[in-house]
Design a protein around this nucleic acid. Structure first.
Lengths: 209, 209
DNA sequence: GTCTATACGAAGATAGAC
DNA sequence: GTCTATCTTCGTATAGAC
């Protein structure tokens, strides 16, 4: 595998996202990103002329895109339950793997209002909005009214993000499981009411992973 | 009104809580607390021998107690809908008053894992647990099975906290209203199923819709 | 792209005077 | 209870060599 240029830049963004998850936005300093990524100190402002704010912003965008991809994969399978499950499964895995020391990097940025970097709040909002629209579109396609679809999508994202925070504090997946169970029932009820889940036209045997 | 001793200490804790809400845990420095509260710099370690960690911890406890009080007031009225509504109303008001720049101080502490102050995570967890138990007890008293009551309580807290974060990012109360609407329906359904809301022993004239 | 050196500010904490 | 240093560490950012 020929590597024509350094991968320091990419590693720094990935490290920044990991540090956001674990320590929050303020604690994600350039020094710590360098230590975590092993990238050389000398090229920080070469790769990120915007400095620390640009680095954090790219980490938020990367994390937002990754999660949006998970949801949109479920959406392509045209399966609301799968899309929502992907969301829960992601966080359940990350909480356990990280020994309940990691959360959502988007949340970390959103809760630390930064007067000198208002762009960060906008990036966080963009991520939430994208997730919400992906879910809402899927719900509407399965028969929910436009407004209810959007409402339910926002609600699910809120419940998951809030549950992840509680799981961290309590060092237990219980709040996430509570949310998963309640959301599962609620979603099943909402979609069954529209008749969507009973649609016999679904001829797929195994949706793509 | 005779003031026999300085109120610097109390003002500092209140200021710390306000700063936690707006800027997060890492950004709530002693300097900023002093500037916000107007307290004298010289007596910081007199009032808080444990330093900054103790100050933050007391702010978390104070905020947690305040919100627990709101929920428990609804609980004393024996009205699940009122208890949950108090929760939503509090956050809606704070978001709007603070121009969407403030959130929950407990969340702020929970998402910034601090290796040197593990006590903070425990204090955050204690607050969440207390809210959850107050709500769960109320739900069980209204006919929900023990496990469902706890599950629903955790779920509601998660949804509210998550919604507050989304409201901040999007600078809109829409996510909170979405959560309020969904929770309202869910709660009404859960309690009606148990027959609690239809209980004729309730001498109130109009049960909430 | 990467290096070292450095300027500059802010943070937590302590010491000792009043 | 409150004051004023002061120490130390850490943070961002820049300059200039290689």
């Amino acid at each position: 595998m020929v590597r024509r240029k350094s991968d320091s830049r990419e590693r720094m963004v990935l490290s920044a996202a990991a540090l956001l998850r674990e320590y929050g936005a303020s604690a994600t300093s350039i020094d710590r990103v360098l230590a975590h990524s092993g990238a050389p100190r000398g090229s920080v402002y070469h790769h990120f002329p915007g400095g620390r704010a640009q680095l954090i912003d790219e980490a938020v965008a990367l994390a937002g895109d990754f999660i949006a991809g998970l949801i949109e994969t479920g959406a392509r399978a045209d399966d609301p339950v799968e899309a929502v499950d992907a969301f829960f499964t992601l966080w359940r895995g990350r909480l356990v793997e990280g020994d309940f020391r990691t959360g959502c990097p988007i949340v970390a940025v959103a809760v630390e209002t930064n007067d000198d970097a208002p762009q960060l709040a906008r990036s966080a909002a963009a991520a939430f909005t994208r997730w919400q629209e992906a879910l809402a579109t899927l719900f509407v396609r399965h028969g929910l009214p436009e407004e209810r679809g959007r409402r339910l999508a926002a609600f699910i994202i809120a419940a998951v993000e809030g549950a992840v925070i509680m799981c961290r504090a309590e060092r237990s997946t219980a709040p996430l499981e509570a949310a998963a169970a309640e959301i599962h029932d609620l979603l099943a009820h909402a979609l069954r009411t529209t008749g969507s889940l009973a649609d016999p036209a679904r001829d797929r045997d195994a949706p793509p992973p």
